Structure formats: structure tokens, C-alpha cells
Amino acid sequence: MFAIIGFELKKSLQDRGLLFWTLILPIIFTVIFISIFTSGLSGSDRQQVIVSIVSGYTIMFVFFIMISMADSFIKDQNIGMVTRIESTPLPSLFYLLGKWISYMYIVIIQILILTTFGKVIYDIPLTQPLYLIILFIFLTVMVTGLGLALSLLVKSINMGIALTQVVALGGAVLSGLWIPIDIMPAFFQKISNFLPQYWAHQAFQDAMSGTLQVADLFKTLFVLIGFSLLGFIVALFAYPNFLRRSKG
């Protein structure tokens, strides 16, 4: 399992596309949208908008790790790697965990860099750092857990890219990552309560501002871990079909 983790991390560091999706593009979007939406604002209003954008775009872009995860699994499938691993004493569960954990490292680094960027450039408040660290970890597990499920279900990288965009962009719109949830239609506000992006975004903003209550923190963590378990369970059930589609 540790060999798989090390191999995936080494391979990911050489992937320029991953660098673009995880860091370059979110920073560009953050700078552009902060410039647009803070024009003419000052004081607490400006800071509130900046906190919403930094946290919102961080949450939105962590979902794009699903593209790299799907690409990695499909390549393993096409070159016969999955079949060869299956013929060794290594349990399938360790193979899945090795891939999952390697991408957890990448996402947590992504979140830390984007949050540091927001702090250094825009001086966003990090009033409840312990709560933020806990949220970072649970968000990472949740996103990569869903990515694990998606990677075993899709049959091509194009399908993986399409579904990732639906999850990332569609979830961002419905969860208020682009525009404040309060000004969205009531129907969309009800839908947002069933999406992990909404819960993560609200908790991130409150923890940054120092207003996140313990009860709300645990409620958010419960939602995130629930989606994490859902992704892992779906992946376990999807693995046999994934294995049958593998070459070799």
C-alpha cells in the first residue's frame, strides 16, 4: 500500500495538468472575481466578500482532483496494472486505500496553499485555526472519497472530466459558492442543504470569521464524513466491474 502511495505522489508531482487545475486556475479565478465583486466596497463588506470567494473557490476547485484520480485509475486499467495487482497477495482494499490516501495528500496541500494565498494577499482572517484544520481534513477525505467512487464507475477519461465538471461546477452554483445563497431562489436554497459544498462553505466562512459554533462544526463534519463513507462504499461495490473491464 505504501509503495502505491509513493508511486502516485511521484507521478502526480510530474503532472503539469494537475498543477494547473489545483493551483494556477483557482488563483486566477480568485483574483479576477475578488477584483470584480469588491469594486467600490470597503471595510467589513469587502472582507466578507473576500472570505466568501476565497473559501468558495477553494472548495470548488478541490473537486477537480477527481479528474486526476479518474485518469490514474483508467491508466492502471488499460495497462493491466489492476490485473497484475489482483494476482498478488495485496488485497484489493489496500490498492484502493493506497490510491485514495495519495490524493488526500495532494488535496490537503492544495487547500493549505490556497488558504495561505488568501491570507498573504488579502489578509483573510483565520480566527478559529483549529476548526479550520479539522474542516480541511474532513473536506479532503470527502472529496477524494467521492473521487474514488467516480474513478471506478467511469469508463473513459472524457466521462470522468464531464462528471467532475457537473459535480464541481453544478455543486458550486447550487451551494452558493459563486453567489450568496441568501439571494438565490428558495428552491435552490433547499437543494443546497443536501450538498456537501454548502455545508463546507458555510463552516469555512464562519471559522475564518470566528463565529463557528461547536454544534455547527459537528453537524458539518457529520455531513462530510457521510459523503466520504458513501463514496468509499460505492467504490467497493464498483470495484468488481472495474476489475472485469481491466486489460490483461
Rank of each mutant, 00 (worst) to 15 (best):
L212V: 07
G17H: 03
Q14G: 06
L150V: 09
K10S: 09
S156Q: 09
A149P: 00
R16I: 12
I109A: 12
I106Q: 00
V167Q: 04
I36L: 12
P129T: 08
N241L: 13
D216M: 13
L221F: 08
L93S: 13
G80K: 07
I106M: 02
P185M: 13
S72H: 02
Y105Q: 05
T30A: 07
G6H: 12
G145R: 01
W100F: 14
V214Y: 09
L112I: 12
I4D: 11
V82Q: 04
V166R: 02
Y95M: 02
R245W: 07
I161Q: 11
K10A: 10
L9K: 00
Q77L: 15
G40P: 02
L25R: 04
P89F: 15
I59T: 12
V234G: 08
V120F: 15
F232S: 03
T22S: 13
V62N: 03
V82E: 05
L163N: 07
L236V: 13
L13A: 14
Q205V: 15
G118I: 02
A162E: 06
R84C: 10
D71T: 11
T211H: 09
Q110L: 11
A172D: 00
S246M: 07
T127E: 08
T116K: 05
I74R: 11
K75Y: 09
I157F: 12
N158K: 11
E86N: 15
L150P: 05
A235P: 01
P129G: 07
H201C: 05
Q77H: 12
M81A: 13
I65K: 00
A238V: 04
K155H: 13
S209F: 10
K75F: 07
P240L: 12
G80P: 04
V167D: 03
F63A: 03
S192P: 07
T144V: 05
D206Y: 08
N78C: 02
S102K: 00
Q110V: 07
T116S: 15
S39E: 13
A172F: 00
F64E: 02
G98C: 11
N78I: 03
F37Y: 15
I79N: 14
I79Q: 10
D206Q: 14
G210E: 09
T140N: 00
S52H: 14
L212R: 05
I101L: 11
L126M: 14
A186D: 12
R84Q: 14
I53E: 05
R244W: 03
I65V: 08
I181S: 12
S92K: 15
S156I: 06
F237M: 11
I137Q: 00
V214H: 06
M60Q: 15
P180T: 06
L93T: 12
Q48N: 15
R245P: 03
G171K: 03
W100R: 02
L236W: 10
I50V: 15
D76W: 02
S228D: 01
Q14W: 11
